[in-house]
Design a protein around this nucleic acid. Sequence first.
DNA 1: CCATTCATGTAATCGGTTACATGATTCT
DNA 2: AGAATCATGTAACCGATTACATGAATGG
Lengths: 208, 208
Amino acid sequence: MDGKIQTLGYALLGLLARESASGYDLLRQMQAPVGYFWQAQHSQIYPELARLEAAGLITHERVEQQERPAKKVYSITEAGYAALQSWVTRNVGLPAKRDELTLRAYSLWLADPVQAIALFREHARSHHALRSIYEAKLERMQQEWGTALYQINHPQFGCFLALRRGIGSEREYAEWCDWVADMLEGATADRLADDEPAGERREATSGG
Amino acid sequence: MDGKIQTLGYALLGLLARESASGYDLLRQMQAPVGYFWQAQHSQIYPELARLEAAGLITHERVEQQERPAKKVYSITEAGYAALQSWVTRNVGLPAKRDELTLRAYSLWLADPVQAIALFREHARSHHALRSIYEAKLERMQQEWGTALYQINHPQFGCFLALRRGIGSEREYAEWCDWVADMLEGATADRLADDEPAGERREATSGG
DNA sequence: CCATTCATGTAATCGGTTACATGATTCT
DNA sequence: AGAATCATGTAACCGATTACATGAATGG
């Protein structure tokens, strides 16, 4: 009665396949770099580790430390490797996308343009910033590993792929945010120039 | 103090701000077009409508039909408009990204390249297909509305922004999938070429 | 002294999916 | 007769977040 392994379990296996680690270590790694595309709190990680161990995919060893509390260091087993390998290329459907900012954009015709411009510029900045972090990380990796980054059977290849995805998606998102803000700015500038009040915004604004 | 309005509630308000509708109508609209960036089943929609009504943001009217079961047609209230408007430009943090395919890519160094290529080509196809659907929808909208699409206080402007986001993100995702598959193919070709000295060595170059 | 880091757990809650449940009407 | 669409609800479950809980050691 192991309780089926879920996505978080494979995320943890993916980390332990690179290096043995404690629950606390894994928590740190689930913030960065894995946290860029999958997140988990410690309250989810510790029970999941117990489940993975019950399923025989990992084992642990108690390690005493002089100046720190003792810790459980988990290692992946042969069965764990096998489970991870078969999961990686298993068929999976398209992820259901949930994006609150796009949902807001859908109702943006109701909003105050000035506030909307501020919101979208701010998000553009955030996504640009995240992209910069990813790019810096990739550059450091390229300096450290060079062409070894392209060796498809080495762990750093996985990091490389994920970072590329992060850079691309953040760039795309930032560009869209800026494009939205540009459109709003253009339209409000038009209105000032034209001196022509565009159509009323239904009851919500016509009521005043 | 009834249950606070959550994101789904604003999604429904965003639809009702365009047109009054029954729960069933809203369910259809939560599949497309809103389902491209926010999903919900009827089991979530009906209770949420009750909550919105209890909060005074919508009202309903029973409508009898000759050849169909009777339905409740919901309409947005003044308070609903106000709530929606204030939500649209309210500050919101970056969404926590959860992408299982990227998570798998992180462990792709362990996988069989042939299976991995198949997986990523398949996802590339799916994202290309979705992008085509969005592009066709946008074209139809452009034919129907023309430059009215750029009027920032009309409902179709919201559709336009969301479709643009869909097209961009699906293009980016598809390109990344193809780039991953290209890299894997290049690397496996390299390995074959090593056995046949006449073979051409393909360099793994960064895409995008 | 108090905040932070290291280190590990459980409990309560919540948003969302899946399953259960009912019933009318139309089309094949 | 049976499937599909229209139409509306509740209940069970599950993954994930937030809160509760403990305790040692370091640094300011």
